[in-house]
């Protein structure tokens, strides 16, 4: 057999062995067998001296080429085994990605607080500041200075909780108007979100609920400005398509006064159980600050005018989330609260 033939069959043999090798270890024995110091290729090359220079050159080149080829195959196969090993190693730590996550689950927001915050932020972005007052309030601020004298039937509009310290649980956020105007001279642009209390409990009334009061006092503020401001607010909360209706009404601390209805968000105005077939939902009360209120706090009603409004938050939250019983809001049954994850 010529050397050439020998080399060629050696290459074939090595190819075959590498192809069938099943581990990194078998690869190294193949390497030793063919390319080692005592390997087959070496021993062939040892007999190179017997050849003519031309043949030596030719066979030498061939032997080198075969050597490189075998080395290359070995490297590739080795790489294959390494990758396979890594894959197997990784596979051992395979995680069922569908297992429950192991991190704190975000808490739920309360729908009323959420609504309160949303509305407050809307007014803040319009340029109103947040004002506040206590919930245990003086009768004077809750009623008298708001032009609701003692023994006036207007006090019947708000069933009051009386306290053993001679004060009341505020029946509305309107006393914050008084507190603000006693401390601050016009111009004034505030909102007052907070808890209020009335002696009333049924599926649509809670003895505790939340209101946001708004007050804007400056020169040249008119009823039409009030309409504009409330339009921005109501469209911001209920969307551009909401219908808005102003009905003249009566509140002792505003004059003229109005109640504001929005088109029923349930039926769209065609009439349903929620709107008692009227197509409208009463949403807030408002009006121009009564001169008696200005006088009570020492603001000149001939110089300044202003508007005020007050809205119940629960009503809006209940419409927004289609909640049918106000009492659910304050039971803190987590089966209820957990439905409100992911709202702001």
């Amino acid at each position: 057999m010529s050397l050439r033939r020998e080399i060629e069959s050696l290459e074939k043999e090595a190819n075959e062995l590498i192809k069938n090798a099943d581990s990194i270890e078998s690869l190294s024995s193949i390497k030793v067998k063919f390319l080692g110091k005592k390997g087959k290729l070496k021993s062939i090359l040892k007999s190179l001296g017997k050849l003519s220079p031309e043949e030596r050159k030719e066979i030498g080149q061939l032997a080198n080429k075969v050597k490189e080829e075998i080395e290359n195959l070995l490297r590739k196969k080795e790489q294959f085994f390494r990758e396979k090993a890594i894959q197997e190693e990784l596979k051992k730590d395979r995680v069922d990605i569908t297992l429950p996550p192991s991190w704190i689950e975000v808490g739920s927001a309360h729908p009323v607080v959420s609504t309160l915050v949303e509305i407050s932020q809307l007014f803040i972005s319009m340029g109103f500041s947040v004002a506040e007052g206590p919930e245990v309030e003086k009768e004077e601020y809750n009623f008298d200075m708001l032009n609701i004298p003692k023994d006036h039937p207007a006090r019947d509009m708000q069933d009051t909780f009386f306290l053993n310290n001679g004060m009341v649980l505020r029946t509305h956020t309107s006393p914050v108007q008084i507190r603000t105007m006693l401390k601050q001279k016009p111009p004034i642009a505030v909102i007052a979100p907070g808890r209020v209390y009335r002696k009333d409990a049924d599926p649509t009334h809670s003895p505790m609920f939340h209101q946001i009061e708004g007050l804007l006092v400056d020169e040249n503020i008119t009823f039409r400005d009030l309409k504009g401001t409330l339009k921005i607010f109501l469209e911001g909360i209920f969307g551009k398509d909401i219908g808005i209706r102003f009905r003249p009404s009566y509140f002792p601390f505003t004059e003229p006064s109005a109640e504001v209805d929005i088109s029923c968000t349930v039926c769209g105005g065609t009439g349903c159980r929620v709107c008692k077939d009227t197509g409208w939902l009463e949403i807030l009360g408002c009006g121009m600050v009564d001169p008696n209120v200005f006088e009570a706090v020492g603001i000149d009603p001939e110089k300044y005018t202003g508007f005020a409004f007050g809205l119940g938050i629960e009503r809006i939250a209940m419409l927004k989330y289609k909640i049918n019983d106000i009492r659910l809001l304050f039971e803190n049954d987590m089966r209820f609260n957990h439905q409100f994850k992911g709202i702001r």
């Binding site: 319009m126 340029g127 109103f128 500041s129 601050q184 016009p186 111009p187 004034i188 642009a189 804007l216 400056d218 503020i221 008119t222 009823f223 039409r224 400005d225 309409k227 504009g228 401001t229 339009k231 921005i232 209706r245 102003f246 009905r247 003249p248 003229p256 109005a258």
Partner: peptide
């Protein structure tokens, strides 16, 4: 009062507090 069109007041920014 319902028929009259609305206007938009200038909110007095000088009284704004954070």
């Amino acid at each position: 009062l319902n028929q009259v069109s609305e206007t938009y007041p200038k909110i007095p920014t000088q009284s704004f507090r954070k």
